[in-house]
């Protein structure tokens, strides 16, 4: 039982970053951003190439995160400048990011087992307590997530952060307040895709390699995790932006633990997506049966 819990927790905490990215864009900017799929692999690709070529860890991570951010900003720019549909803008950038990642990597896969890794610093803790549990990795990832959580929350609570949230929730009203809506959308997507790229970096380090296909399916996974989190946490108890963040993290962990348990119990890899869909439907059905009705504003 501990093994799937360990795998679920580690993966859940890593992928929580991309779920947060999607949730912030979706719920606070009202932008269903498909770019996260591309920015995750782009971030991982940039990180892998830089670290492989001798760059320092902070430099490689910073460049990777910024590369993801630029992809997000490009989606925002395409949408606001050419008035292209939000989905189509994302799809275009995902296609660009895929080719770009391949070109940057020069191959479809780069091994990172011999390269510096942040998980090296907690290796002793991983081996010292429970051998089945990577306690060091879990604590490190939780600490990183906590720092990220506090930073994002602080940013969203500032006057600029509030402006960003107004631009997303009611663009016409935002204009009445003199808020530059297009700029806020571009900047907001830059930030959220930085987070998605960071998720890609962590995933590469955890797996010990970067693969061109590691972003594929991430969108569905993130959407499923977001839905699970939002359905299981009480929305009215906390401010909306805190709820969105908490639901993303909680949903990511719960989803990954459940999937890891299902795989551990012998689920065939081919059935994984079917199980994901059933899982989401079960959570949604559970919430509706508990509330007795549909929840207003659900999408």
């Amino acid at each position: 039982m501990l093994v799937p819990l360990d795998i679920g927790l580690v993966l859940g905490l890593i992928l929580a970053w991309v779920v947060i990215a999607l949730a912030l864009a979706f719920r606070l900017l009202d932008f269903p951003d498909l770019t996260v799929e591309g920015s995750l692999s782009l971030g991982a690709a940039v990180f892998a190439v830089l670290i492989k070529n001798g760059s320092s860890m902070p430099t490689a991570i910073t460049c990777a995160v910024l590369a993801g951010g630029v992809a997000g900003a490009l989606t925002g720019f395409i949408h606001v400048r050419f008035r292209l549909n939000k989905f189509l803008s994302g799809i275009i950038v995902v296609a660009i990011a895929y080719s770009l990642s391949l070109r940057i990597m020069g191959a479809s896969n780069i091994g990172l087992l011999q390269s510096p890794n942040i998980f090296d610093s907690v290796e002793s803790l991983n081996n010292s307590v429970l051998k089945q549990i990577h306690l060091g990795s879990i604590l490190l990832l939780a600490a990183l997530l906590l720092i990220g959580f506090i930073l994002i929350l602080s940013g969203l609570s500032t006057r600029y952060g509030l402006g960003l949230r107004v631009a997303g929730s009611n663009p016409d009203y935002a204009r009445s307040l003199g808020i530059n809506v297009p700029l806020n959308i571009v900047f907001g997507l830059f930030i959220t895709n930085c987070l998605a790229a960071f998720s890609g970096v962590l995933l590469s380090m955890n797996q010990g390699f970067t693969d061109i296909s590691m972003g594929q399916g991430i969108l569905i996974l993130a959407l499923a995790a977001m839905t699970i989190g939002e359905r299981l946490l009480p929305e009215k108890a906390i401010p909306f932006h805190i709820f969105v963040l908490c639901a993303a993290i909680f949903g990511s962990v719960v989803y990954q633990v459940l999937v890891a348990c299902a795989v551990h119990e012998g689920l065939a890899a081919t059935d994984l997506k079917l199980v994901t869909a059933v899982l989401v439907l079960l959570v949604v059905a559970f919430k509706i049966s508990r509330n007795g009705d549909f929840v207003e504003g659900d999408q």
């Binding site: 606070l28 509030l162 949230r165 107004v166 009611n170 009203y173 909306f240």
Partner: peptide, 16 residues
């Protein structure tokens, strides 16, 4: 249309 639905009443007043 005259407020931001996902902001608290306080934040709606604060930003304006």
């Amino acid at each position: 249309q005259g407020t931001s639905p996902t902001l608290s009443v306080f934040d709606n007043l604060f930003i304006a």
